[in-house]
Design a protein around this nucleic acid. Sequence first.
DNA 1: ATTCATGCAAATCGTTTGCAACCCA
DNA 2: TGGGTTGCAAACGATTTGCATGAAT
Lengths: 151, 151
Amino acid sequence: MTLLTQDLEKKLKEQGLKLTVQRKTIFDLLLAHNNEHLSTEELYELVKEKYPQIGLATVYRTLLLFMNLGLIHKIDFDDGFSRYEINTHEDDHRHHHLICSQCGNIDEVREDLLDTLEAEILEKNGFLVKDHRVKFYGVCNQCRQYNTSKG
Amino acid sequence: MTLLTQDLEKKLKEQGLKLTVQRKTIFDLLLAHNNEHLSTEELYELVKEKYPQIGLATVYRTLLLFMNLGLIHKIDFDDGFSRYEINTHEDDHRHHHLICSQCGNIDEVREDLLDTLEAEILEKNGFLVKDHRVKFYGVCNQCRQYNTSKG
DNA sequence: ATTCATGCAAATCGTTTGCAACCCA
DNA sequence: TGGGTTGCAAACGATTTGCATGAAT
């Protein structure tokens, strides 16, 4: 059992909430697919493979619960779907997303480097940054090479 | 007439599209309220003051058009509404948003400082960054002072 | 005159909610 | 046992769309 699964149990217990099969299944799938930016519907399809009788509303309710417990966060790629990612511990400051405008692929970077900027924001604006979300739009490596080969 | 209004006319003409009173009105209001992150509904209410017979669908269609013409871009603050900002020329690299988790206020910073990070992304990932969106979550100056005064 | 744009209302679709049945603690 | 939880279906709300009318070029 991972550290994160312990987190789930602990946080539920703290609130007097129950660890159901549905919640466990959804959490495990979020863990297993954590780099895929799953939408609710995509997650629902995955859960049904393991627990066919689940209802879509349960998936929505569970994701909202996990958000409130601070276990996951929402990401938005403007495609009309809410997507989710586990809040891993090491990742106090999260990774950034690279969104290719050409092929639509979404990659990640571990680099952070926003500390300087955040210090400056505190100094100039008095705003204390606790977290950030960064999306880069551009052309991915594959598309750049394709563009070049076209001439 | 501003440079940006000329842009609207020019871009519409290029595509064989028409400059209607509705489009002009919506564009002017977007310009006048460009730091307010207006939602579609909010914009609709403003437009009705100048042009009461307008339909909500027209506002939606116009905003979509302006997006496709590259005149505006969508911003998402996870409150269930799509919001929009004019793409001003100087702002090739846009400002960042400071979202206060305590009072919900949204401010802006002009600082950029992502060039180093973007150069590194190109080098390591082969991803050519053309644009970015950055949201900082934290505590604003006012709330920090309030927190302190509470003891 | 032609073609695009509008307003209205209905449709769409992701998400939320009411409620009776269910099941973990 | 009892209160949280689920599944279903209905409700919701932002956004989109069909269509007949209206306006810009």
